[in-house]
Each structure stands twice: as structure tokens, then as C-alpha cells.
């Protein structure tokens, strides 16, 4: 029994898997937010860098909150997220070494075409949220401590509404990623705050469309944070720094600007030359 099973397994393994893991060469682990991965940005961005340097960038895409936690556990060499206050706190607490701006896009408020709260065309996000709260129209929240979630809570806070008091009634916390939350919002005709890149690349838009956009308060800044080797001795500091330099340099910034989906530019590079 043992002999024959082992034979079977070994044979299968050797037949099927001469392809070992892609272990050749150097690599870094990038803890990233989901919006950048789901939009397809990395497929556009990384080949250029990998070809030039031979350094493979392995992207782990999770919510911003979890990404920062993972990086704090030293499970990444670099952080690319979009919650500036949390990023700066991470640096201040000693986990991160340096935080720099990479690019921005904006958040948009998406909802059903029927627009039960009549927010379509609002120039101000605060006004729109106020109407949603008043009409008690369904609103889907990430509820997962991600960058988008932090942003959304800050917006509610700005108009003096505590939506979590209504959690379970009109305020629905999915506790999931952006894509999963968009699927939920589409499924229950709910309003939802999302970054523009994820929305444009989202394949299941159904009858939902952008209802509020363009308010300066919806600005969405992405930052890159290097990990402090004093906190994480194993961090691949040099390779990570090389990627940051490339990303913030002319090549990386041009590549970001060149990433388009359906004719739209999804991210706008805004690295300050030489870093901040």
C-alpha cells in the first residue's frame, strides 16, 4: 500500500511538475492595495522594471489596513497603498522608513441609475452623503479598514453623520475588498464609494453608474513606503529602493500616465522629483 501510493505520487509529481516555482533571480514582495491590482496597473507597470533590473516584483494585494499590518510583520519589502495618515503613522511608529507620493486618482460615488436618494449631479460629496443618510437609501461600505474605507469614514465624519449607528439597516458593511463590495452594491442597488480605477476596470457594473465625482474632497493619493531595516532586518532594502527610484523616476511616472483603460487614464503620476 505505502509503496504503491508513494510510487504513484512520485511518478505523478515528476510527470506533471518539472516546472518548479519561479525562483530564479532576485525578487521583492510588494504589499499593495487591491485597487491597483484589480485595475491591471501592475501588469502594465512591472514588466518594464523587471526587464530592466531583473528584479521580480511579487504583489500581494490586500486592503490598505492589512497591507500595513503585513508590512509591520516584516512580510513585505515595500508598501504601496492609499491612506496617507496611516502611512505616516506607520513611518512614525518605526515600521516604515520613508513615505513618498507616487500618483493619485480620485474616488467616485457610484449608485443605481434610479438614484433613489436623488444625488445625481451633486458637486459636493458631503451634500450627497447627507441625502443618502436622510433618505436611508442603501449604502455599501467596505468596512475593512482599507484606504477607501478610511476615506469614506472621514467623509461621513465631515458631515457629522455616524453611519455605523445604522449598520445593518441602510448602512451595509461588507467587510470585503473593493470588488466584492461593488458586487454587493450592484446586487442590492446600493450606493458605494470606490476609487475610479477599480470602477472603470470593474466588469460587473450592471445598472450602476458614477453619480458624484470631481469634488476636491474625493482626491485619492497613493504613496509608497519603504520598510525600515532597523525594524525588519530581512528586508531587501536595496532592491526595494531601486524599485521606488524607478517608480518615482521619469520611466515609472511615464508608465503610470500611459496606463489606460477604455481610453481613460486611471492614475495620475505626481511624484515630487527627488522625493519629499
Amino acid at each position: 500500500m505505502f509503496t504503491s501510493l508513494r510510487c504513484l505520487a512520485v511518478t505523478l509529481t515528476t510527470i506533471l511538475f518539472p516546472v518548479a516555482t519561479v525562483a530564479a533571480g532576485e525578487f521583492i514582495v510588494l504589499q499593495s492595495t487591491t485597487s491597483t491590482q484589480n485595475s491591471g496597473l501592475y501588469e502594465h507597470l512591472l514588466p518594464g522594471f523587471e526587464k530592466k533590473t531583473g528584479i521580480q516584483v511579487r504583489v500581494v494585494a490586500v486592503g490598505t489596513g492589512q497591507a500595513i499590518k503585513n508590512a509591520g510583520n516584516c512580510d513585505g519589502d515595500l508598501l504601496l497603498v492609499h491612506a496617507k495618515a496611516a502611512e505616516e503613522a506607520f513611518v512614525a511608529e518605526g515600521g516604515g522608513k520613508q513615505r513618498r507620493d507616487v500618483m493619485y486618482n480620485d474616488f467616485v460615488l457610484v449608485g443605481p441609475s434610479a438614484d433613489p436618494a436623488e444625488i445625481g449631479g451633486s458637486a459636493q460629496i458631503g451634500d450627497a452623503l447627507q441625502r443618502i443618510a436622510h433618505s436611508r437609501a442603501a449604502f455599501a461600505s467596505r468596512g475593512d479598514d482599507s484606504g477607501t474605507h478610511k476615506k469614506e469614514l472621514a467623509l461621513w465624519n465631515g458631515i457629522g453623520v455616524d453611519p455605523q449607528a445604522h449598520s445593518g439597516s441602510w448602512y451595509r458593511e461588507t467587510g470585503s475588498g473593493m470588488g466584492a463590495t461593488l458586487n454587493v452594491a450592484v446586487g442590492m442597488d446600493a450606493y458605494v464609494l470606490t476609487d475610479r480605477a477599480t470602477w472603470i476596470s470593474f466588469g460587473n457594473q450592471a445598472d450602476h453608474r458614477i453619480l458624484v465625482e470631481g469634488d476636491p474632497a474625493l482626491f485619492n493619493q497613493y504613496g509608497v513606503v519603504t520598510i525600515d531595516p532597523a525594524h525588519c532586518p530581512n528586508v531587501k532594502e536595496a532592491a526595494a529602493e531601486r524599485f521606488v527610484e524607478w517608480l518615482l523616476g521619469p520611466e515609472g511616472q511615464a508608465a503610470i500616465a500611459g496606463f489606460r483603460l477604455d481610453g481613460q487614464q486611471l492614475f495620475h503620476p505626481n511624484a515630487k522629483n527627488g522625493g519629499s
Binding site: 484589480n38 460587473n204 457594473q205
Partner: peptide, 23 residues
Amino acid sequence: GNINHVTRVMTTAIALETSKGNL
């Protein structure tokens, strides 16, 4: 971590495509 070309398997690819709305 669902890393492309390294640790992406069928189920994590399905989860990713679902989150992208590519049902």
C-alpha cells in the same frame, strides 16, 4: 498572497476575477 506567476492557483484566480467583476 495570490501572487501572479508565483502563488496564484485556480481558487485564488477565481476570487480575483470575481473581485474584478469579471463574473
